[in-house]
Simulated assay, not measured.
Amino acid sequence: MSTDTKTYKFNHSMIRVKDPKESVKFYEHLGMKMIRKVEQSEAKFDLYFMGYDSSGAISSGNHFSNREGLIELTHNYGTEDDPNYKVSTGNADPYKGFGHTCISVDNIQAACQRIEDAGYKFQKKLSDGRMRSIAFVLDPDGYWVEVIGQNPVEKTEGVTTTDTKTYKMNHTMIRIKDHEKSLKFYKEVMGMELFRTSENASANFNLYFLGYPGKDGIPTTSANGVNPTAEREGLLELTWNYGTEKDADFKYHNGNDEPQGFGHICISVDDLDAACKRFEDLGVNWKKRLTDGRMKSVAFVLDPDNYWIEVIQNENLKESQHKI
């Protein structure tokens, strides 16, 4: 058995939602399409996989396991009728951990205006604060969705049109305690490459953008100086706040302990058995091995901050017994 990390894809990020109709409607407004729906009526939950699928999308028409930048919405039956149910978005103390997903758009001013015209609320508008090149819109559950431009803001000023067919699911952000440990894990264990580092010493934090290059390599930067990785999809942003690694008692909330919200990130691999054997040989901490439980088609690895990483078979790369 062999496995090549260059074939791996950052397939999806999972978040729990209260009302799937409202959530699907929101992500469809952002230009996404429901790529796949999995109904688990016996276990009383459904999964909705949302992603960009226009003719210009990077993964257009692909099998869901052969894509990057999907968002999996998990709905547990009955939450939509429970007035007391709400998710933990990962951005409020003491449950910070998951930060946001991010889409990149052709024209950020027009895209934000279109979102606002639809009645959706913002955590941060373009005009708020000092950073005028990014915005954060709130989904129906209050999760943050960052909006960045594929073009510099000065070039799109005054342009009133935006085409959702050009949008990309650019990245998912999680906060990390120890940048050295996390970078080592995601590079050496998960096989990702570090594409960009944004150091913000005056604000005491750094950002690290990682992803899979693909077998033939994908350009990692564009001419957009503010967001040079805006043309990519399926990146992982690690946010490190200085000093957290020195606090023995400090930890982030992984979204799966109560109160729940964010669930996991997921990578698809060329050979699931071989990939899991490699992870085992590297001494990873497991949440679930392939052989555990009834679901023999998925495994879950724990990263240094106890975030869950699902591992699935890329069905385009191998006919497998592990179909999901």
Rank of each mutant, 00 (worst) to 15 (best):
S59M: 10
S59E: 12
S60Y: 06
G61F: 02
G61R: 08
G61D: 07
N62H: 15
N62D: 12
N62E: 13
N62S: 15
H63Y: 11
H63I: 07
F64H: 15
F64S: 12
S65V: 08
N66Q: 10
N66I: 04
R67D: 01
E68V: 07
G69Y: 10
G69S: 05
G69L: 04
L70I: 07
L70A: 03
L70D: 01
I71M: 05
I71T: 10
E72Q: 11
T74V: 05
T74F: 01
H75Y: 14
H75I: 02
N76P: 00
N76S: 12
N76D: 09
Y77I: 01
G78T: 01
E80I: 01
D81R: 09
D82N: 11
N84I: 05
N84M: 11
Y85V: 08
K86Q: 11
K86Y: 11
V87K: 03
S88V: 09
S88M: 10
T89D: 02
G90Y: 00
A92W: 06
A92N: 13
D93L: 15
D93K: 15
Y95P: 04
Y95M: 05
K96E: 09
K96M: 11
G97H: 06
F98W: 01
H100F: 00
H100E: 06
T101G: 14
I103D: 08
S104F: 00
D106H: 02
N107R: 08
N107Q: 09
I108Q: 05
Q109T: 10
A111K: 00
Q113V: 10
R114W: 13
I115L: 12
I115N: 04
E116W: 08
D117S: 13
D117P: 11
D117R: 13
A118W: 07
A118P: 09
Y120S: 00
F122G: 01
F122P: 03
Q123Y: 15
K124A: 10
K125H: 12
K125E: 11
K125C: 04
L126H: 03
S127A: 13
S127L: 10
S127W: 06
D128M: 07
D128I: 07
D128H: 08
G129D: 07
G129S: 06
R132A: 14
S133G: 10
S133K: 12
